[in-house]
Amino acid sequence: MTARSDGPEELPINGDDDVVRVRQLVRAYAQRVKLSLVDQTKLVTAASELARNTLIYGGGGFARVEEIHDGRRAGVRASFHDEGPGIPDVTLALADGWSSGQGLGLGLSGARRLADEFDLDTEPGRGTVVTVVKWKR
């Protein structure tokens, strides 16, 4: 799998306006690789949830968005990085309906369902990186 030669774009996530900018950037990449409207919506929804989690639970951080290719198809990879407290119980955090805050508990589990690929790298005291990929069908 390769990224575009112009490399990934990074945006800070330090406030609500940044969450909006991340959504807009992810949508632009999804349109660039010609994802269907349904897949664009899925990816943008997942990115919005993950950007909000980065802000609320991670205390802010950044998003990295890039176009990727696997030799057969194009896709978009979006990763969300924070240096927050980390997630002590990943199994619980990925369970539908569970929330550590006031939310509906659909952030991580919802993002996982909406993406073609999902990766969660976290450890208490080290922060969290969540990566999602959506491939063109």
Score class of each variant (00 low, 15 high):
T45C: 02
R112H: 02
D96V: 04
G59I: 12
A78Q: 11
T54H: 05
G103V: 04
D39P: 00
M1I: 07
L11R: 14
V133R: 11
S99R: 05
V26L: 03
V133E: 07
S48Q: 11
D121G: 04
R113Q: 12
L25Y: 02
K134Y: 01
G86V: 10
V33W: 02
A74P: 00
D82S: 13
P88C: 06
R21G: 02
D17H: 07
D6M: 01
D70E: 08
V132F: 01
Y29T: 05
N14P: 01
V19S: 02
I87F: 02
L50S: 05
L25Q: 13
I56M: 10
L25E: 10
G101I: 01
R77K: 15
S36Y: 01
R4N: 06
Q24D: 15
A47V: 03
D82N: 15
D96A: 11
E49K: 06
G61I: 13
T131E: 09
L35W: 07
G59H: 09
P12C: 01
L104Y: 08
Q102M: 06
D96G: 04
S5T: 11
A51Y: 00
T54D: 07
S100T: 04
T54V: 12
V33E: 11
I87Y: 01
R73C: 09
S79A: 15
E117L: 08
P12T: 12
T45A: 13
G75L: 09
G101S: 13
A28H: 03
K134G: 03
G58D: 05
G97I: 06
V26C: 00
M1C: 06
P88D: 14
A95K: 15
Q40Y: 03
L92E: 15
S5F: 06
V38M: 04
R32M: 05
T91Y: 02
S109V: 14
T128P: 00
L106R: 12
R113K: 15
S100A: 14
L106E: 07
E67A: 09
A3T: 13
W135G: 12
L114D: 04
E66G: 04
Q40E: 15
E66R: 14
D18Q: 12
S100H: 03
G110S: 10
G105K: 08
F118I: 06
L11Q: 10
S79K: 04
A93D: 12
L120I: 15
L104S: 09
G107R: 02
G97A: 04
G125L: 05
A111C: 04
F80Q: 13
K134C: 05
R73Q: 15
P124M: 13
E66F: 01
A95S: 15
A46V: 10
S99T: 15
E67H: 03
R113H: 12
R113W: 03
V130K: 00
V90P: 01
V33D: 07
Q40V: 15
D96T: 06
W98N: 14
V26W: 00
V65M: 08
G15P: 03
